[in-house]
Amino acid sequence: MAYSERVVDHYENPRNIGSLDKNAQDVGTGLVGAPACGDVMKLQIKVNEHGIIEDAKFKTFGCGSAIASSSLITEWVKGKSLDEAATIKNTQIAQHLALPPVKIHCSVLAEDAIKAAVADYRAKQGHKAG
């Protein structure tokens, strides 16, 4: 399979690999995908008091395109507000990485991951407030 240069770059030099403390109140975690399907993404965001994502980390089990999609989205969400982050569309990721049709699902997974992380953070804040 021929990968685009950007996919290869993210695969070889993944940005923001790692984990944040999933129990911390200012961290939202999204875990999407399934091992049986061949890809699992864990995306974590750390949100400051102004509602801005100041750090993002990922770990991914999946093909090169899945790794690149998650690596890319951690770059994109940093410095964004939660609302802004939640508007990132899989098509933007797919386009940026020039994903072939059989790999579009990787970008969908990345979009799902950030949405799940935002939802997890909001749920924690809701609990705190309530």
Partner: peptide, 19 residues
């Protein structure tokens, strides 16, 4: 960089997760 490997190291049974 595998979330699954990390979970296994933390002692989580992957089968217990509702994927």
């Amino acid at each position: 960089m595998s979330p699954l490997w990390e979970m296994v190291q933390e002692g989580i049974d992957l089968k217990s997760i509702n994927w």
